[in-house]
């Protein structure tokens, strides 16, 4: 468990360091959300209707954009090989790296989401649900993303391929996440959507470490 915590701490520190990429991801998130009102017009009624969807799709893109740094640097300088020889099973190493990825992308995006939702004229009454949904949903993005990141780690310019592989698998998180916010906005209970989102998270948590570790092993041979 010590090693697990050490990997999480190290990766988080590296991402937060100047030039580590975490800030850029957040900046990308804010910038892309800003593009939507410019694209569809400043009509507040329209923006409030699509606001939740815009935030979720953008969060998805931001998470995806930063996935390649999950294993790439460690793969290139050989530290991934060392990590695979460490007493910690590779499955848990993958989990630690996904956790660090979430801490430096999913979590800040969740914190920023209400601010941007305000700019998109989303009713503040739905903010707690929005944040709760993102809190449950963004770890799914990091977990499923770890499979894609592990598969493409040895492929030159694998970034586009990575998004092609990962994006279809993000569909359930996107749907349940947006529907929860939508239900709250319509004055309905978001509970079933949040529960389904939670179920999707548990499935991702149970399955992705095995697949991602298998993918890493094949790239380390």
């Amino acid at each position: 468990m010590n090693v697990f915590g050490a990997i999480v701490a190290r990766d988080t520190r590296l991402a937060l360091r100047q030039g580590g990429g975490s800030y850029w991801t957040l900046l990308f998130f804010v910038l892309t959300v800003t593009m939507f009102p410019l694209g569809v017009g400043p009509d507040l009624a329209l923006l409030s209707r699509i606001g939740a969807g815009v935030l979720w799709v953008t969060a998805l893109l931001a998470a995806m954009l930063s996935l390649d740094r999950m294993f790439q640097a460690d793969f290139e300088d050989g530290s991934l090989e060392l990590l695979s020889l460490a007493p910690l099973p590779l499955e848990l190493t993958v989990l630690a790296k996904a956790a660090a990825h979430w801490l430096t992308t999913g979590l800040p995006v969740t914190v920023l989401a209400p601010l941007l939702a305000l700019m998109l004229a989303v009713d503040p009454a739905a903010f707690p649900v929005l944040m709760l949904a993102m809190l449950i949903g963004t770890p799914i993005l990091s977990l499923i993303g770890s499979i894609g990141a592990a598969l493409t780690v040895g492929i030159r310019r694998g970034g586009v391929l990575l998004s092609l592989l990962v994006m279809p698998l993000y569909v359930p998180a996107l749907i349940f996440g947006v529907l929860a916010v939508q239900a709250a906005l319509d004055g309905l209970t978001p509970r079933p959507h949040l529960l389904l989102l939670g179920a999707d998270f548990l499935v991702a948590l149970a399955i992705t470490p095995w697949l991602a570790a298998a993918a890493l092993r094949l790239n380390l041979e």
Partner: peptide
């Protein structure tokens, strides 16, 4: 690995859609 990840997720995707 891609096929397995897809097959695990497909029922969830279909259900969510």
């Amino acid at each position: 690995i891609v096929a397995l990840a897809g097959s695990v997720n497909l029922p969830i995707i279909h259900y969510s859609v």
